[in-house]
Design a protein around this nucleic acid. Structure first.
Length: 216
DNA sequence: TATAATACCCGC
DNA sequence: GCGGGTATTATA
């Protein structure tokens, strides 16, 4: 044991995401699901602390980010700076591999209920496990990226191992899961990232793989 | 200027 | 044809 408990259980009932298409500020509609048992979660965390943006003071928007307990000013001591690369304070579990993603035969980890479980698009009962509604994932990713002020380029490269243009396209024009072939993997990563706790997300953002490219 | 969206192109 | 990268352009 190296003291690093890598086994992180992304437990979370997954809040009922609203498919609201607000063409500008996509805010969460009071989805205070009661899962504040954990201190940090998705929306339970006020996205006030910018990750790496030197400026960009976010002030409007997060109206519901207030913690039900009242501890709004829970300024996370987390130094969000995935742009940095020299600070290796904590050993992050190397699980942010990019390419060497062992192509498992469809990881059927039912840790969470996949989105769009209300109706199989294929209806034919295709062999895809964990159906992912690409449209929904795209919207959520977009929202989170904005919420945390994470540029597409950063997220795309560090989490998805893709380019900014690709991510933008996927976010804007997400193809239905049924029509996807190998592009599913990319969406899976997005979906996976959404399920991870905040701190783990940041870890993924600062990492670049391993000794892949020591640039940045 | 920085970030996002689009266009065009290439590899599998 | 699909998926993705780079370059370009558009926008804040």
């Amino acid at each position: 044991m190296s003291g690093t408990y890598t086994t992180l259980t992304p437990l979370q009932p997954l809040p009922p995401i609203s498919t609201h298409h607000h063409h500008h500020h996509q805010r969460l509609s009071g989805n205070v699901s009661g899962s504040f048992t954990l201190m940090r979660d998705e929306r339970t965390l006020p996205a006030m602390n910018n990750i790496y943006s030197p400026y960009h003071k976010d002030m409007s928007g997060m109206g519901q980010s207030l913690s039900p307990l009242g501890n709004i000013h829970n300024a996370q001591p987390t130094l969000h700076n995935y742009g940095a690369h020299g600070h290796d304070k904590m050993h992050l579990n190397g699980m942010h591999g990019c390419h060497p993603q062992s192509h498992g035969p469809v990881l059927a980890s039912n840790r969470d209920r996949p989105p769009s479980s209300s109706g199989a698009p294929g209806s034919g009962g295709s062999g895809q496990l964990e159906e992912i509604n690409t449209k929904e994932v795209a919207q959520r990713i977009t929202a989170e990226l904005k919420r945390y002020s994470i540029p597409q380029a950063i997220f795309a490269q560090r989490v998805l191992c893709r380019s900014q243009g690709t991510l933008s396209d996927l976010l804007r024009n997400p193809k239905p899961w049924s029509k996807l072939k190998s592009g599913r993997e990319t969406f899976r990563r997005m979906w996976k990232w959404l399920q991870e706790p905040e701190f783990q997300r940041m870890s993924a953002l600062r990492l670049a793989g391993k000794t892949r490219y020591l640039l940045f």
